[in-house]
Simulated assay, not measured.
Amino acid sequence: MFVTRVERAQFSLLVVKVACSGEAVRQGWKELYQRLDPDSMQRLTAASYGYVLVPEWQWDSGVRDLWVGIKAWPEMTAPEGTAVIDIPERQYAKIRVHGDRRKMEEAYEELNRWFMQSELERDTSISSYSIEANALFPVNPFDIPAHVISYFQYDIYAPIKPN
């Protein structure tokens, strides 16, 4: 398990805002999915990801809100109860979570350790988000109840503060 520094291009997400809990994330995913039109549903392919955005500016007081979403496309209209969030091009510290809950905790600890040992700072400014990218196929992790899921495979992208 190791951290790499990566650059991600600008992209937009169609999201719903949820409370910071595994069950709320899954409920938000269901709500988002129900709001998608047939054209949007057809665009969810084997290459699709479900995203969880973590607002970095909330870490000091405790993260209360998350956003759950899918990549938006230019002509997409946000259905009622959703929003589009634009994520700018920027650098991230990336680590892969691959394993049980203990491995997930170790990945977050390793990410924090990497920032402490690096000359780089985590960007906790307003409108800065960490991104958790979850493959939706072959198994959609958002379809597994939070109290049941025992295996995790997703990438964490923690924003790096610009120089």
Results as ranks from 00 to 15, higher is better:
F2I: 05
V3R: 04
Q10W: 01
Q10G: 00
S12I: 04
L14C: 00
L14I: 00
V15F: 10
V16M: 07
V18L: 06
V18Y: 07
V18C: 10
A19T: 04
A19R: 14
C20N: 15
R26Y: 08
W29K: 03
E31I: 06
Q34I: 04
Q34S: 15
P38S: 11
D39L: 14
Q42E: 11
R43Q: 07
T45M: 06
A46F: 11
A47Q: 09
S48D: 08
V52D: 05
V52M: 11
L53G: 09
V54L: 12
V54F: 14
P55H: 06
D60W: 09
R64A: 12
D65P: 02
L66A: 09
V68A: 13
G69R: 07
K71D: 06
W73Y: 14
W73Q: 07
A78T: 03
P79E: 06
G81I: 03
T82P: 01
T82N: 01
I87W: 06
R90F: 09
R90I: 01
A93D: 05
I95V: 15
I95P: 08
R96V: 12
R96W: 08
V97G: 05
G99C: 05
E105Y: 06
E109V: 07
E109H: 10
E109F: 09
N112D: 14
R113Y: 12
R113W: 11
Q117I: 02
S118K: 06
D123A: 01
D123S: 01
T124I: 11
S125R: 07
S127G: 03
S130I: 03
I131V: 15
A133Q: 10
A135T: 06
P138L: 12
P141L: 11
I144D: 04
H147D: 08
S150L: 00
Q153V: 05
Y154V: 04
I160W: 01
K161F: 10
